[in-house]
């Protein structure tokens, strides 16, 4: 896996864990995730609800509730446009401290599924964007307003001079999402985390927003972590993809390999079960039997064991599956996947 020596890596997660302390036990929402994000690239994280993809984002952004316990390392290699000699370990920062607040917004920005939740309803969209800019980039109010207007224009909001003084509820769903992207991008962050940004939108609006994110990424050279449950969206946006299941990354590879040479049985089943218009025929879908187990007090074995067609009692049912490098740069967490050069990675 790419490491510290690799100059292009801007953010690296090493064995990141998030546990929620509940009355009934420990909920392992994220269970040893190792991923790295390259400069200017998009890392897609895909999985079904409850797989821990959003919690992973929350761990990077450190916005998890107080009963969440973040473990492992989350290393940030670049701050304010400069390469750091010693990376900042976000996982070790105080989630309410000044350091993380300096990183949030300025270096790492986030776009949420529900823009209404990100904007305060009692301030105009413009005020909120200007506030962020004055905090991180440009303290002068007039200049900050100029930047805000420019950014709103950049995300395709028509007549931004007028829209900047409108309240969030005055904008339509698609416009609100654009405004939130504008707020996230106004400080030119090095990393943008997009958590299901188009899930609440209609397909035609989703198409516009996806287009926008891709265009902006190229323009301001931002690295993106794109979180979604929709493999179609992943195919359109990502360079590298991590498939998550039960808090673990089960497959991690380049986007092309994921769709054309998937190795993990879960990824394969998932790809088969998407109904797409082009492989249309009236008939049965390939589905995955059973449901995702609840991630609490689980036995020590492959998480996909119950639902997998290849599962072998003596092998997969005994211990957690190891991460195997199936092809160069293509990792899968499965006993049944052959390592390409018998090289095992933890």
């Amino acid at each position: 896996m790419p490491g510290k020596d690799d100059d292009s890596v801007i953010l690296e997660m090493r064995e990141t864990r998030v546990r929620f302390k509940m009355d009934a036990g420990l909920l392992k929402a994220v269970d040893g995730v190792s991923l790295s994000l390259r400069k200017g690239a998009t890392l897609g994280i895909v999985g079904e609800s409850g797989c821990g993809k959003s919690v992973t984002a929350g761990a990077v952004f450190r916005t998890l509730p107080s009963y969440a316990e973040v473990g492992g390392d989350i290393l940030l290699y670049e701050k304010d446009g400069k390469r750091l000699d010693e990376p900042i370990n976000i996982a070790k920062l105080n989630p309410t401290g000044p350091e993380i607040r300096g990183i949030r917004g300025g270096n790492i920005a986030m776009v949420f599924q529900e823009p209404m939740k990100a904007f305060s309803p009692i301030h105009t969209v413009g005020n909120q964007i200007i506030e962020a800019i004055r905090l991180h980039v440009e303290p002068d109010e007039g200049k900050a307003r100029r930047i805000a207007i420019d950014t709103l224009g950049l995300v395709g909001i028509s007549s931004p001079e007028q829209r900047i003084d409108e309240y969030p509820h005055q904008l339509s769903g698609g416009m609100r999402q654009r405004a939130m992207i504008a707020m996230a991008l106004s400080c030119k962050p090095a990393i943008l985390i997009a958590d299901e940004p188009t899930t609440a939108l209609d397909v035609t609006v989703q198409a516009q927003v996806l287009d926008l994110i891709n265009k902006l990424k190229a323009e301001i050279n931002t690295s993106v972590i794109y979180i979604t449950h929709d493999l179609g969206v992943i195919a359109e946006t990502s360079d590298e993809v991590a498939v998550m299941y039960l808090g673990k990354v089960v497959e991690y590879c380049a986007v092309d390999a994921l769709f054309h040479d998937p190795r993990h049985p879960y990824t394969r089943a998932l790809l088969r079960s998407i109904p797409t218009a082009d492989k249309r025929r009236k008939g049965r879908f390939d589905s995955i039997r059973g449901t995702v187990p609840y991630p609490m007090n689980l036995p020590e074995r492959c998480g996909f064991f119950d639902r997998c067609d290849l599962a072998e009692e003596g092998l997969c049912g005994r211990s957690a599956a190891p991460m195997v490098e199936a092809a160069p740069g293509h990792f899968a967490r499965c006993f049944k996947v052959e390592p390409y050069a018998a090289k095992e990675v933890v």
Binding site: F20, M22, L27, A29, S49, G50, S54, G58, Y67, Y294
Partner: peptide, 13 residues
């Protein structure tokens, strides 16, 4: 955690 884990997490508390 509730938001991310769907309704299931209510089971915990």
């Amino acid at each position: 955690a509730d938001a991310t884990l769907g309704g299931k997490s209510t089971r915990g508390p």
